[in-house]
């Protein structure tokens, strides 16, 4: 306990190394503008990944989050455009859109969770299915094109992504709150302890009077809620949603969770690690864009190497522990 735990420190060391590397390669890297950009664009995946940490820790998985975000963005835009004539160009209309996104997220999460816990279908299969469903629905709603928010509403809504307190924009603030709350819940609440117990061994949890299905369902709903929240912040960025919104977000979120030290098979959740994982992924992209280190064709390879390395480091530690 007293000796520093490489398991948790590994990703943090990698993050610091990336920051140093970035600063050496390009002085613009540490400019407040760039830092704001990186943090703000990490916010969507970040909030989703915090929710994903709970789902994975409880032994589940959700592949549908990227499509779900696209779908929620789509229905939020449609709702706001529809409410516009009646309600006018004001915050009330935007609140309607936000409400639709957040409630929609809860419902979508409930749908995933209920199919998994009540119908007892493998999470991989259920969310693979809903992934396709949400993606198709948004493409269909957009008629194969793009759903765009009314221009006037966009102008009003825009500061939710771009505005904030000084350099710190709202997405960053929201992400920070979600991260702190997530960490607290995982570490200090009964829910968090139950989530870890279920992922560790759901039979033991059941024999300890824990309502396993209810807790599992709640993890999916929490994730849905956070996807909704991410959507609320995503829509003002481009004011549009299409079939290509949120593609592969699910894999980025899962990768961030795993880099952060949460076991894919469940049982141990590290919300802080997940936040570090998200930042690592965003930084790699940012540094590669800023620095011309390698051919852009190889960006994906660099990301892949770092993901595998992060997990290998943790594995080494685990093997050492078992001896």
């Amino acid at each position: 306990m007293s000796k520093p735990d490489l398991h948790t420190l590994g990703p943090l060391v990698a993050l610091v190394a990336l920051i140093v590397l970035g600063a050496l390669l390009n002085p613009a890297f540490l400019a407040p503008g760039n830092i704001t950009n990186v943090l703000a664009r990490s916010a969507f995946i970040g909030m989703i990944a915090v929710g994903m940490t709970f789902v994975i820790t409880a032994g589940g998985l959700d592949l549908s989050v990227g499509s779900m975000a696209a779908f929620l963005a789509g229905i939020a835009i449609i709702a706001m455009n529809a409410a516009l004539p009646g309600m006018g160009e004001n915050w009330g209309t935007i609140l309607v859109g936000m409400g639709v996104a957040v409630l929609g997220g809860l419902v979508a999460g409930y749908l995933n969770g209920a199919l998994i816990t009540k119908a007892r279908i493998e999470p991989f299969i259920v969310t693979l299915g809903t992934m396709g469903i949400f993606r198709s629905l948004v493409t269909w709603l957009a008629d194969g094109g793009t759903l765009s928010l009314d221009y006037g509403l966009r102008t009003l809504y825009r500061p939710v992504y771009y505005g904030g307190i000084g350099w710190i924009t709202w997405p960053i603030i929201t992400f920070a709150i979600v991260a702190f709350a997530g960490e607290w819940i995982m570490r200090h609440s009964r829910f968090g302890r139950h989530v870890e117990a279920i992922g560790s061994n759901d039979r033991v949890a059941r024999y300890s009077a824990i309502d396993v299905n209810r807790i599992r369902l709640m993890t999916y709903m929490l994730l849905g809620l956070l996807v909704g929240l991410a959507t609320v912040l995503y829509v003002p960025r481009l004011g549009s949603a299409s079939g290509s919104t949120g593609v592969l977000w699910e894999l980025e979120a899962i990768a961030a969770v795993i880099i952060g030290g949460t076991a894919l098979k469940g049982g141990t959740g590290r919300v802080w690690g997940t936040v570090v994982g998200v930042l690592i992924l965003s930084l790699i992209d940012n540094i590669l864009n800023l620095a011309d280190l390698v051919s852009p064709y190889l960006n994906g390879a660099i990301q892949g190497v770092i993901i595998v390395l992060a997990v290998v480091l943790q594995r080494e530690k685990r093997i050492a522990e078992e001896r």
Binding site: R190, R193, H194, E196, A197, S200, N201, R203, V204, A205, R206, Y207, S208, A209, I210, G267, T268
Partner: peptide, 22 residues
Amino acid sequence: DRKEAGLLLNKGLRENLTLATL
């Protein structure tokens, strides 16, 4: 079934002790 239904073998003593009565 101590190992499969009784205790979380990869969790600490404290977590195991209080799991059913949190």
